[in-house]
Amino acid sequence: MFKDISFGQYYPANSFVHKLDARTKLLLTIVFIVALFFIPSNATNRVDQAWYGYFGYMVTFAVLLVVIIFARVPIGSILKSIKGVLFIIVLMAVINLFVSNQGEVLWAWKRLHITDTAVHTTIKLILRLVLLIIGASILPLTTTPVAIADGLESLLKPLGWIKVPIHDMAMILSIALRFIPTLFEETQKIVATQKARGASFDTGNLFKRAKALIPILIPLFVSSFRRADELAFAMDSRCYNATNKRTKYRVNRMGWRDLLAFLFMNAYLVVILLDRYYWVFEMDRIIFGGWLGK
């Protein structure tokens, strides 16, 4: 039932990207997402330039390729994360295809029509989403959940000055990540138990199916509370909150790798910004202009 979920699935390896500080990877993931949204999705209204605007996506693709090679994670595990949201991507693409009124009409039926601009913006939308998911999956694939929680705690430290309980939040996050597989296992067991008693989860309409989930959720909640209780005892036994000066087993130190990664990703951001505000499709003209003969 939950075999496809690759969330929090750390892929152990000893690569350049694995060795980066979690904070570096967190910040650079944000840089990447910001850059991705600066890539124009609509080139221009002019028909002859509908093909423009792909340069940013090509650069992004190349950058991701480099990152994946340096991360040494298998393509399969990356594609798995796309599979999870494939339905949403397809749905958004289909809607997007019909909404644009600009450009040359390629196909029309009654009130529905598809223009060439719509085709291009749709392709760009799909590219943007796929690249976003690939880029965002690098972080959990190459960083242990604990390191991510630690990195977040360290990055959010300034909030501690205004009495936000950063450490507790990091602990909650780390425990949540630790218990995700345990609770999935538990859910599967409960599903099997209820099936053995004749419950059916794949028949009936949407409401019937939603209702069928209740006998799964209630035992899951009860057992989660029991687990939380036991975990609290175990944490107390191991002196949680014994001192305010808690030390860290994992040390986070930035090194030359982090510097290189920062330079690389920021160069990427600069290229994307230049493409949008300074070159304005100059690159597309160079690449596609000759090819299109215009």
Binding site: V146, I175, Y240, R246, T247, Y249
Partner: peptide
């Protein structure tokens, strides 16, 4: 129901970390 960390060694380190 006793481990707080996802990775084995991090969990073992939990107690000593708490003691500072």
């Amino acid at each position: 129901n006793q481990a707080v960390a996802t990775i084995v060694e991090d969990d073992v380190a939990f107690g000593p970390e708490n003691l500072g």
